[in-house]
Design a protein around this nucleic acid. Sequence first.
RNA 1: GGCGGUGUAGCUCAGCCGGUAGAGCAGAGGAAUCAUAAUCCUUGUGUCGGGGGUUCAAGUCCCUCCACCGCCA
Length: 524
Amino acid sequence: MSSKSPYYITTAIAYVNGAPHLGHAYEVILTDVMARFRRLDGHQVFFLTGTDEHGEKVATTAERNNMAPRDFCDKIAAQFVEMDEILNISHDDFIRTTQPRHYAASQAIWNELTKRGDIYLGKYEGWYSVRDEAYFGEDELNTDENGKKVAPSGAEVTWKEEPSYFFRLSAYTEKLLAYYEQHPEFIEPDTRRNEIVSFVRQEGGLKDLSVSRTSFDWGVPVPNDDRHVMYVWLDALTNYITGVGYPDTNSDTFKTFWPADVHVIGKDIIRFHAIYWPAFLMAANLPLPKKIFAHGFINVEGQKMSKSLGNVLSPHDLVNAYGVDQTRYFLMREVPHGQDGNFSHEQAILRLNSDLANSLGNLAQRTLSMIAKNCGEVVPQPDGFTEDDKALLDLAHIRMLPLVRHEYDRFMIHRAIEEIMRVSYEANSYIDRQAPWGLKKTDPQRMNTVLYVLAEVVRCLALIMQPLTPASAARMLEQLAVAENERSFEFISSGHSLKPGVKLPAPQGVFPRMGDAQNQKAAG
RNA sequence: GGCGGUGUAGCUCAGCCGGUAGAGCAGAGGAAUCAUAAUCCUUGUGUCGGGGGUUCAAGUCCCUCCACCGCCA
């Protein structure tokens, strides 16, 4: 197809402890938008998402629901699969850590680490919190009102002692620091990298990491010692290589796609991805992913989403209220690169109306309906372009894509959207300046040219909107009679302009205005 | 407590290596009427968190203080 480099992008795999919420939706949409952009831009893309299903917490939750862990996981995993369908996610594979292929990969990497001498048997003892899935030092604990010891999170802790395998993380302190130094783009945004570097630089360096448990059995068995199951994070992180065929490092997928171009994750799990994962990979003698991108969280009406506040939004709520493409667009538009974003119904309506309905949707509609009424329902024949025409066409054909691509390269989707909207504004300004409705009587030839220019700009806008609003962009392209195999970004050029005389279907509005009805529905 | 970040128009944010502030939305006025009552044009006197310093010149560099956030302890 093209000589552009393959592109491997992943979401974090979702922990199946609970149902999908808006945060999961945001992450998978962000990743999907990036994956679609790269595909349309000529890259061979592999987009992996999935679910993380092991660990004591899942086992406990399953038990509380009177379900076997596996059945419980099946149930929740199905909800994530369903969410991806609803959100029109274009993943190439959906991995579950309970799949046989993943057991094979996890045990293989374990064996590699062992072979390398980086895993040894020791003993873990300390105060353990099931809820946090973590041990705490005596000095980290607080005392609650009943005089009981609790974790910093407030979770109950119990004294536990268990034999455990350890990963020699301490041996990687300097190697990791050197890697961060040599690859400043490895962790983004910068503020997250600063945090990681200062953590790794801590006095005494990194401590070895407990990587197995004997106190429960819901996990991948440790090879040659099945009293132990592997630590969930070692198991979970390995999904990124399982997905491309590990342990078969000679497979086509592995050779093509590893190392991954980017792991898209939430800022809360940066440490696992920016410290543990590269250390594991170094130990297994595998190349490291090129980038860890940590996104922020979505607040709702200015407040953190939380069950106790009762303001948890499900992806379904938004999709029902605004539509799939609108939900995708709003989240991408309103959450700046790596920062937290805010969702509010008022803002959603303002944004969706002003960007999608008023500017872009209306531009397409006014253009197409004038063509339908005045040009015999076919692409009009242009007749010589003026400077004004050329300026707008150049913007759409030549300048827009590089500007947008530059922002995508940096995960600045909100900025990319601004660049796209700028073109839409320019086109609306042009249409008023040229006033084709007035030319109808005075100069029909010129009217045809103006409408042709507009239709051509709408075509380019629809093409570049595809990653963000795939279904709506497709509808716009259908209305312009653009064939499905002519929708990649190489068609954003004057060389692939609309052919005059081609019959066009009846225009239909693509981005409806949101009114109070939607607001009510969403709030309820 | 340590490290890092943020604080710029009503709202969300841009402002690279210093040269006396910008964009979108919202608001106001006008034009137009092809279109989803959508569009276009015009319109922002903001102590750029406070104070001090360096400089001919500082959101933009230095110091300090305040507020908020993140990571670590």
